[in-house]
Design a protein around this nucleic acid. Structure first.
Lengths: 212, 212
DNA sequence: CACGCCCTCATACTTTAGTCGAAGGCGCCG
DNA sequence: CGGCGCCTTCGACTAAAGTATGAGGGCGTG
């Protein structure tokens, strides 16, 4: 509260590129002295980091990371830890991509070519509770919007579908019955507006790519 | 035969970017005076162009084009017109990608940052019958190699699978029975070393992306 | 507490996917 | 020419995917 003794912050940096990780870490430690900064190089490590530190003030998330599979991983993290603000740090300076991450609940979107000062400023704004809306993109990219209707468990199912798992494997990995998985799949397909598992996987994986 | 009166050449440029198309056209028309140069902006147009001009001397093919779906379109063209040399013109300067296109039967691989002179030289070499092997990449990228085992009809089936079509639709589009398509799918899955349609689609679509 | 939402699961059913065996065409080679 | 291999085609069969309906329990909210 006091301006002279700011409470210590805790961050989690998720990026598989060591150089980027160090740069972000340096920027944060300079902008927020005494901050606790953790790092993760994959979606799994990021999940583990949040598991051990659920009070993380902000997650800086790279989209092109093992296990992310496009924006599926973002939505997955967002579903499991809805209170942790996520700042997407992507290599692509694409307004549509920014819009998609916004639709999926990201608090901000910065591209890697931005200066560290800009990134620090963005983080500061997010810590103040701001949600940085992307420049209005009036495109008909309805898939990402439809995807926001998915529940957390449905996101987990979709994430495994996207990896090529079949219902039986998904049931085992999630510790539920196959009938349950099938029920989820049915709802997922309806919500996404597709007619088959294959189409759902195609669209979900295409989320992170430029629109063809 | 005679050096003073070179026979007229015919080329097909397939790229959805008008600027690139014009640049390539200019380069070719300068390097090969009197050449007949056609253009296509999608996989379908490229197929139509080859249909009407099967004696094309070389196809300059962009990978990021509507309908291509990664390297699937390349293999499709290669299967349907095995005698037409294909020169891949890609935006990505990636040795692995070059290797994959080589495995799939491309005669050469140049990236768009190359000068028009380099491209013209490459085309000339290909017209002389050369196949420009990529720098040795000793990685275990076996999927593209496995994919070369597919027959032309199997490639057509896979191309439609990758678009999300189901067997019944594929059968209709190819003018065969559904049982036939199923038989092809079975062989495709075995040749690709995967165990489900979804996995095959994931891998086929990932062919054009950097290895995760 | 009643209501809605999510997760869970079972049962039964329809549709799609995938496997197996087999037949005919076609080129190649001894 | 007869055999051989490959491609294509297909029907019958088994497995998986997807739908419909119903039901029970947990959890937050007015």
């Amino acid at each position: 509260m006091s301006e002279t003794t700011p409470e210590p912050r805790s961050f989690l940096i998720a990026d598989d590129h060591p150089m980027v990780r160090d740069a972000l870490r340096a920027a944060l430690s300079q902008a927020f002295p005494g901050a606790a900064i953790c790092a993760a190089a994959s979606l799994g490590e990021a999940q583990a980091g949040l598991e051990g530190q659920p009070e993380t003030d902000a997650l800086l998330l790279d989209l092109d990371m093992p296990g992310m599979e496009g924006l599926t991983g973002l939505a997955l993290l967002r579903s499991d830890w809805p209170t942790v603000p996520i700042i997407v740090v992507s290599a692509a300076r694409d307004a549509r991509m920014a819009r998609r991450t916004y639709d999926l609940g990201a608090s901000a979107y910065v591209d890697k070519s931005a200066s560290l000062e800009e990134i620090a400023a963005t983080v500061r704004a997010v810590l103040d509770g701001e949600v940085i809306a992307p420049p209005a993109v009036e495109d008909g990219d309805t898939f990402a919007q439809r995807a926001t209707q998915l529940t957390p468990q449905q996101w987990r199912v979709l994430a495994l579908m996207v990896q090529g798992d079949q219902n039986k494997q998904i049931a085992y990995k999630l510790g539920v019955g196959e009938a349950t998985v099938k029920a989820h799949v049915t709802v997922i397909l309806r919500k996404l507006g597709v007619r088959s598992r294959t189409q759902a996987v195609i669209e979900a994986r295409s989320l992170s790519l430029p629109t063809v």
